[in-house]
């Protein structure tokens, strides 16, 4: 597919998976301001959204932001435009996972930690990070 069409299609897919209208965001940055994990991200939430708006598929897919999102929903609670940002982050993750690109290898998780952690920590991580 032609690159421009492919990028347009990417933004449409993200809107579809998340059920959000990407143009609703007016880039106030409140999501990033309240995000407990923004400082660990190379591209914070509002920038991920800006990239999706601009149809910058490669930049979105290379960003670490969505993988640091713990779905705590603070941004969703505070967004003045009613954008469900965690759904957008999930859509980006899901886009990777459906292309069979996971970010964790179960074999690489520390065995001692596996035995110590509650099952719901592992199950949650597997559902967000593996396909």
């Amino acid at each position: 597919m032609n690159k421009i069409l492919e990028e347009k299609d990417f933004t449409r897919r993200i809107e579809e998976i998340s059920d959000q209208k990407i143009s609703d965001c007016y880039q106030c940055g409140r999501c990033t301001a309240g995000c407990p994990f923004a400082k660990f991200m190379d591209v914070p939430p509002n920038m991920v959204i800006r990239f999706i708006q601009l149809q910058l598929k490669d930049e979105v897919l290379a960003a670490s932001g969505p993988w640091f999102c713990a779905a705590c929903l603070v941004c969703q609670t505070r967004c003045p435009r009613g954008v469900d940002i965690p759904r957008l982050m999930e859509a980006v993750r899901v886009f990777h996972l459906r292309a069979k690109q996971g970010v964790i290898d179960v074999n690489n998780i520390d065995k001692e930690f596996m035995l110590d952690a509650p099952p719901l920590a592992l199950m949650s991580a597997f559902s967000k990070y593996t396909y």
Binding site: P36, F37, F40, W67, F68, A70, A71, C72, V103, I104, I109, F113, A117, A121, L122, S124, A125, K128, Y129
Partner: peptide, 8 residues
């Protein structure tokens, strides 16, 4: 930090 404890 939720499930980030596993990966980060």
């Amino acid at each position: 930090g939720s499930y980030l404890v596993v990966n980060s």
